[in-house]
Amino acid sequence: MTLAVIGLVLAAALLWPGRQQPASLSGAVGRGAGSPPWRARRRATGRLADLESMAAVADLLAMALRSGATPVTAVAAVVGEAPDPWHGVLAEVGDELAAGGAAGGVWRRHALHHPELRPVAGAWSLSEGLGVALAPSMATSAQVLRARVQARRRLDAATAGARSTMHLLTLLPLVGLLAGLAFGLTPWEVYGHSALTVISAVVGLGLTVAGWLVCRWLLARAVAPRDER
């Protein structure tokens, strides 16, 4: 029965529910739907940090532009303060502007791989195409990015109760085993003295794994964006 207990703990660790990443925050939900949960958690955390850092970059660009700097000068001033994910993008944008080109295409090209750039790419392209003031557009982009961060945090808070319930119900059988150990009974002595108890333990382990899969599916359905018509 010790193996069954180990299997139960491993199943709980492997299926530990990570934070769900709504499609509205990232365009890669469908691509990462089948990834292991621990990788999904790392991606979700990284995307949230990227959203916040890109919002800070957009704010810096807006401040530089409002102070009277040209787009070339503003990008050159901000590129040194940009974090690693965006340093190279800003450097490429600065090179394009210095060469007299349109930087909107650069933003859009990188936005294909980094959805966090889409608000900035759209605002920059709108400014170049229609002559919209760039500073207010960058400020609005920063507000949009921060609104997405707050929406993600509210979503995590709303689903925290369901995740905690999943954890609690998974750990309850282990509490029974610990109680048996307190009375000097090993897991094998509790469950391994007959074929019926062994079968019950195996069935319980299978139901636990199935329950985690169903609960994760329900959470994913609950947080998935809906197409309002």
Score class of each variant (00 low, 15 high):
162 A>Y: 10
159 T>Y: 04
125 S>H: 04
112 L>C: 03
160 A>Y: 08
148 R>M: 04
184 G>M: 07
138 M>A: 05
135 A>T: 05
144 V>R: 09
112 L>E: 15
146 R>E: 02
136 P>M: 09
125 S>Y: 06
174 L>P: 02
122 G>M: 09
118 R>S: 14
147 A>C: 10
171 L>F: 15
134 L>E: 08
124 W>S: 09
127 S>V: 04
119 P>T: 04
150 Q>H: 15
119 P>N: 06
176 G>L: 11
160 A>M: 12
182 A>C: 12
161 G>M: 07
135 A>Q: 03
144 V>D: 01
154 R>T: 14
134 L>T: 01
183 F>N: 12
161 G>H: 06
169 L>K: 08
185 L>N: 13
129 G>C: 09
154 R>C: 08
155 L>E: 12
169 L>Y: 00
147 A>D: 14
153 R>H: 11
150 Q>L: 14
120 V>C: 00
123 A>P: 01
180 G>P: 09
173 P>A: 11
128 E>L: 07
186 T>E: 03
167 H>C: 04
174 L>Q: 01
168 L>D: 10
163 R>L: 07
174 L>M: 10
190 V>D: 06
129 G>M: 13
142 A>S: 01
180 G>A: 03
185 L>H: 14
119 P>F: 03
163 R>W: 02
151 A>T: 14
164 S>I: 12
113 H>R: 06
133 A>N: 05
152 R>Y: 14
146 R>M: 11
132 V>R: 08
188 W>V: 15
147 A>N: 13
178 L>M: 06
191 Y>M: 13
176 G>C: 00
124 W>L: 06
126 L>W: 05
123 A>F: 04
155 L>T: 09
152 R>G: 15
152 R>F: 13
152 R>W: 15
113 H>Y: 02
160 A>S: 13
145 L>Y: 06
134 L>Q: 02
112 L>G: 07
152 R>Q: 15
140 T>K: 03
132 V>E: 12
193 H>S: 13
153 R>F: 00
146 R>L: 08
155 L>A: 12
115 P>H: 01
124 W>N: 11
160 A>L: 14
129 G>L: 15
174 L>R: 05
177 L>K: 02
115 P>G: 03
152 R>S: 14
125 S>M: 03
115 P>N: 10
